[in-house]
Structure formats: structure tokens, C-alpha cells
Design a protein around this nucleic acid. Sequence first.
DNA 1: GTCTATACACTGATAGAC
DNA 2: GTCTATCAGTGTATAGAC
Lengths: 209, 209
Amino acid sequence: MTEQEKNTEEKILDAAKDVFQKKGMAGARMQEIADKAGINKALLHYYYRTKDKLFEKVFEIAFSLFIPRVKEIMLSEKTLFEKVEFFIDSYLSLLQKHPFIPSFVIGELNRNPQILVGIFEKNVQFKENNLFEIFQTQIDSEVEKGIIKPIDVKNLMTNIIGLCIFPIVARSIIQGIMFENNKKEYDDFLKQRKDFVTDFVINSIKAET
Amino acid sequence: MTEQEKNTEEKILDAAKDVFQKKGMAGARMQEIADKAGINKALLHYYYRTKDKLFEKVFEIAFSLFIPRVKEIMLSEKTLFEKVEFFIDSYLSLLQKHPFIPSFVIGELNRNPQILVGIFEKNVQFKENNLFEIFQTQIDSEVEKGIIKPIDVKNLMTNIIGLCIFPIVARSIIQGIMFENNKKEYDDFLKQRKDFVTDFVINSIKAET
DNA sequence: GTCTATACACTGATAGAC
DNA sequence: GTCTATCAGTGTATAGAC
């Protein structure tokens, strides 16, 4: 692979990412991707034979961005409270960098849930690692020490991730209803949520004093 | 409007709802809607002149379904804990009845955020009613009585709604990662969340004892 | 109101020159 | 590797008969 080819390929992927994430698989146009990449439509098909294949590539890159972090933090050497704090901080930063990926992923998955089958095999080895069992063990041990209340790890993780992602994917609705569509106010709202969500979760799980 | 016309119009809307929610605006085909409605493609254009207009109608109906409940419960005569419990119970039941609407709404809003402008005017009068201010007053009053910790109403509502909706819109991801794609296990997971989420929220906001 | 037939535009993909 | 030109298929929308 020459330097030039690499550059073209990257330009295509960047352009495809923009267009697919904005318009979705069905709404995206190969012509628009080609224009944005500064190349010809025929060249798209030279690099990625079909629209489907190009989309799959873009989707997988986007999806993979949000998966390894979960695993990494859950298995790190930290107390539960530290993990909660670190995870929320880390995930909200990631979301700030890529605010359109979650809605894109959710929207496309709604239309075609089986996109995931191939991707899981490459990016998710949760099962082999017993990731959730290991994390549940830590939780149970902190329960016994009287630090936190008993809680199921899958419910906990679902809540934390949901509290981070939901305000991003439902932005236009919440911003419209609660903030009279004031963009700046909503950005401020998102900023203060880092501390708010952390407190909310920790307050909920910590043992009674 | 005759009886027959009413039936055809309803048949079209039902079919359009199914197809649009599954395929999205760009992916939906007028032919498929016509087939599913048991009528002819030309008849679609007779009732709703364009695909856009038909889509707008379907989207508005779907969106409106999830808005009045919020308002209604927030303004009801209940204690905060009762409201939390009632809201979660009510919202999760609604989601169980219409599990595909949230992903549909989120996905389409991602592509075209200005769909909402017209809809807000018809369905949302939060501003005039000072809905959030009224609810915040109740919260503040319960804070002073020592029942709950201080909390911002917009953060609280965002959290509650997010905790309800996220496991629905991210179903294929969570089910795949946490439940090895076992549909029945995930349905059970969703069932137990009614109590879990209620406890999670109330634990978080109630005052220290 | 409902149908058949068709116009017209657009899109993904390929052929072939350089 | 990159371009121009073009094809075949598909999709929305309309015309016109009944």
C-alpha cells in the first residue's frame, strides 16, 4: 500500500464517516461521499466495492470506539467508587469528542440489528474474560465490607452508561423541552452532569451510614 | 369523511408507522407501505401528497405519545417519591407497548433535528405552564422538610427518563454484550428494572438518615 | 376513491481510456 | 490509481380511466 493510496483511503473513510453518521446508511449518497473526499464516485467502488462494505467499515470503527473503554475500566485496579468516578469522567469525555456516534449506532441498529454479529466477535471478548463476574465479585466484596449496598453489576453498568449517553442522544428533545432550545445552556447542562451523575450513582449505591 | 375513507386512512397510517419505524424515512419505500396497507401506491399519494408529509404525520403521532405523560405526572397531586414511582412504572409500561418508537425518534432526529419545531408548538406547552419551576418548588419544599437531598429538577428528570429509555434503545448492544444475545433473559432483565430503577433513584435522592 | 400505466429523476455500480 | 461516460434498476409522483 503506497502513501498516496493510504491517504485516499483515509480521505474516503473520513468523508464516509461524516455522511453516514449524518444521513444514515439509506440516506447517504455515494456521490456526496465522493465529493467530500475530493475524489470521483468510481474511485469509491475501486477501494470499497459496494456501499454496504463501506458502511460496515465506518460502522465498525464508530462502534469499536465505545467498547474497549468499558472493559478496560471494569478490570482496572481501583475501588468501586473510583471506578464509577473514572468511568463517568472518561465516558463523558469520549462522548464530547464523538457526540453523533451513539445516535448513529442506535438508529442503524434499529433498522438492522444483525450488523453487530460480526463486530462482536472482533471487539467483544467479555464472555471469555468473565468480565461481569469479576466485577460482580468486587462489588460483593465491598458489600461485605459495608461500603455499599448490594447491587447487580449489569443493572449498575446499564444505569451508568445510560446516564452518560441519554442526554447526548436525546439532545434535541431535552434541549427543546427543558432549555427552550438554547444551545449554550444545554452545553453548560452537559458540563455540570459529570459531577452530578457521579454523585447520583454513588449516593444510590453507598451503604446507609 | 366517509366510513370507508376513514378506514383507508387508518390502514395507511398503521402500515406507514410499521415501515417508517423499521426502515426510517430514507429507507422506507412507498411501495412497501402500500402493500402492507393492502392498497395501491397511487392511493398513498391521493391521501398524503408526498412521502414527506406521510412521514411527518407518522413521526408526530409517535413522538406525541411520549410527551403528555411527563407533563401529567409532574403536575399531579403526589409526593415526590410517589411521583418517581408512578412515573417509572407508567413510562416503562408505555415503552413496553411501543418499544421501537424511541430508537426511531432518536435516529430520525439525528438526521433532521428540525422535524421537532412544528411538533413542539402543538404538543409542548411546558414553558407557559412553568412546569419545571412548579416541580422544582415541590422538590425544594421536600428538601426543607428533610425528606430528600437538594436536587435540580432537570437533572432528575433527565436521569429518570434516561434510565427508562436507554435499556430499550440500546437493547441489541446490551443484550449482545451482557446476555449473550439471549432474548428471554433480557426480557426478564427489563421486567426487574421497574423496581430496580425506582429504588436506584429514590436511594439517590432521599436524605441521609 | 381506487386502479393501471407511465413519466422522470436519481443512484449504485461498471466499462474502458489514460 | 484515477478519470469520464454510461447502464440498469429503482423510487416518487402523476395522468387518466373507471
